[in-house]
C-alpha cells in the first residue's frame, strides 16, 4: 500500500475481489445497492456491473408517464466540482462512464434505490471527512 499523502493522491479502491463475491440478487437484472461493499451494481445488457460509491457523483429521478427514470451520474475529470482535490484520477486519459439512465414502471422501487444511493454517498463523504480530520 502506498503511503498516505494529502491532496491529489489517487486512492485505490475496489468493489469485489472476484465474481464469487457478487450478491445473489444481481440475477434479477435490477439495480442493486450493496451497502457492505460500498457499491451500486448495475445491470448492463446481462452483465452485473459494480460501481464503487467513490465513482458516483449523485443520482436523479423523475417520473414521466408510466415510467420512472433514474440517472446515475459518475465522477469524471473535467467536471466543475469546485473541490478538485477530492477527484484525482488514476488515468485522466481513459474513457469514463459519465452517466447511465434506467427506467422502471415501479416508481416506488426507484425512489427507494435513489435514497439508498444518496445515503451511501453521504456515509462515504462523512468517512472521508473524518479521515481528513484525523490526518490533521
Amino acid at each position: 500500500a502506498s503511503g498516505p499523502r494529502e491532496g491529489k493522491t489517487w486512492k485505490r479502491f475496489q468493489s469485489f475481489k472476484g465474481e464469487a463475491a457478487l450478491p445473489p440478487e444481481v440475477d434479477r437484472l435490477r439495480i442493486h445497492v450493496d451497502r457492505k461493499a460500498q457499491t451500486v451494481i448495475l445491470p448492463i445488457h446481462g452483465f452485473a456491473v459494480p460501481f464503487h460509491i467513490n465513482t458516483i457523483k449523485n443520482v436523479s429521478k423523475n417520473d414521466e408517464g408510466d415510467f420512472t427514470y433514474l440517472r446515475i451520474n459518475f465522477q469524471t475529470p473535467g467536471q466543475l466540482t469546485g473541490k478538485k482535490d477530492d477527484t484525482p484520477f488514476e488515468d485522466p486519459d481513459a474513457t469514463f462512464i459519465r452517466s447511465v439512465s434506467y427506467r422502471s414502471p415501479d416508481s416506488h422501487r426507484f425512489d427507494n434505490i435513489s435514497k439508498q444511493i444518496t445515503e451511501l454517498k453521504k456515509e462515504a463523504n462523512k468517512r472521508e471527512q473524518q479521515k481528513k480530520e484525523m490526518a490533521d
Partner: peptide, 12 residues
Amino acid sequence: GDEMMEIRFHVP
C-alpha cells in the same frame, strides 16, 4: 429487469 435507456461516456 431494469431497462437501461442511455449511457454517456466522457472521452478526454
